[in-house]
Amino acid sequence: MPVVQTPADPRTSWDLPAPGELPRTAALEPLVTRVLAPNPSPMTLDGTNTYLVGAPGAGQAVLVDPGPDDHAHLAAVEAALADRGARCVAVLVTHHHGDHAEAALPWGAHFGAPVAAADQRVAGPGGRVLAPGERLGLAGTTLDVVPTPGHTADHLAFRLESGAVLVGDHVLGRGTSVVTHPEGDVLAYLESLRRVHDLGPSALYCGHGPELTEDPGAVLDFYLAHRAMREEQLLAALAEGPRTVDELVATVYAAVPREVWPAAAQSTRATLVKLLAEGRVEGRLDGPVRRA
């Protein structure tokens, strides 16, 4: 397969915590405390990042992405709330995946706090469905609801008064995000990356991995370039003849651990859907695909 130039990841030169070294609880800025859930894996990295957001001294906090319904994680969140002198007044969820949303309804009931998300199934029968562009006045501060579909159709981000953006799985602290198939959409994902870029974020607080504060715009540029690279790699592989999705993954992701190949296959399918729609390839996802 012809060599496709790999874009440089700006984070490689940053002083970021090594995998497994993220602190369990960390104050990221006056508005935000991060609590790391104990669910590390190749897909969740160090674990799910749960965020507490609220103005100092407000006595209230918003819980964003509670993560797994885990007793030890709940205890750590309650300890972080106590350190802030705050009670939970709302639970917000970036998207429906269980590593972000599982605890939303039980913890909302536990704290007596309403749950809000883009999907009614996540928010629950008594919850609130968030609309793109809403401004939420909560816990002495405001959070802007930013639509970021792509990773999933219901994905949201939340922009804080400080300029930081809670990006869920739209951007990860390490590596790149998966565009799931069939619920993910590469075209929507690229548009969402540009939308977050246009916000000029002061920091990206990711669903997994460390916070990105040094040059968030450079990371978003890298994500866009990385997606373009994957397209070129697929087209280069197909230039050598028809390939199935599994054969493409084995070629394009040969240097990636096999344990993440199933996720790579999802992103590959999602990218092929885009290329099929553009007429650059032809065939079917359940069979060989060829260059058009």
Score class of each variant (00 low, 15 high):
E183D: 14
E183M: 10
E183F: 03
E183C: 02
G184C: 10
G184N: 05
G184H: 06
G184R: 07
D185M: 04
D185E: 07
D185N: 15
V186F: 00
V186R: 11
V186C: 09
V186Y: 06
V186M: 13
V186H: 08
L187R: 14
A188N: 08
A188L: 14
A188R: 15
Y189I: 02
Y189H: 15
L190Y: 01
L190E: 15
L190M: 11
L190W: 03
L190I: 10
L190P: 02
E191V: 00
E191H: 03
E191I: 00
E191R: 14
S192F: 00
S192E: 08
S192Y: 09
S192Q: 07
L193P: 01
L193K: 01
R194M: 04
R194N: 05
R194Q: 14
R195Q: 09
V196W: 12
V196Q: 12
V196F: 12
V196N: 13
H197P: 03
H197G: 08
L199A: 13
L199P: 13
G200E: 08
G200A: 12
G200N: 11
P201I: 00
S202F: 02
S202H: 14
A203C: 12
L204V: 11
L204R: 06
Y205D: 11
Y205C: 05
Y205F: 15
C206R: 07
C206K: 06
C206N: 14
C206Q: 07
C206D: 09
G207F: 00
G207H: 06
G207P: 11
H208M: 04
G209W: 09
P210R: 00
P210S: 11
P210K: 08
E211Q: 10
E211H: 06
E211F: 00
L212E: 12
L212Y: 04
L212K: 08
T213P: 02
T213S: 15
T213C: 12
E214G: 01
D215T: 09
D215F: 02
D215H: 14
P216K: 06
P216E: 00
P216G: 03
P216Q: 02
P216I: 04
G217H: 08
G217E: 12
G217P: 10
A218M: 09
A218W: 04
V219S: 13
V219H: 03
V219R: 12
V219F: 03
V219K: 13
L220P: 10
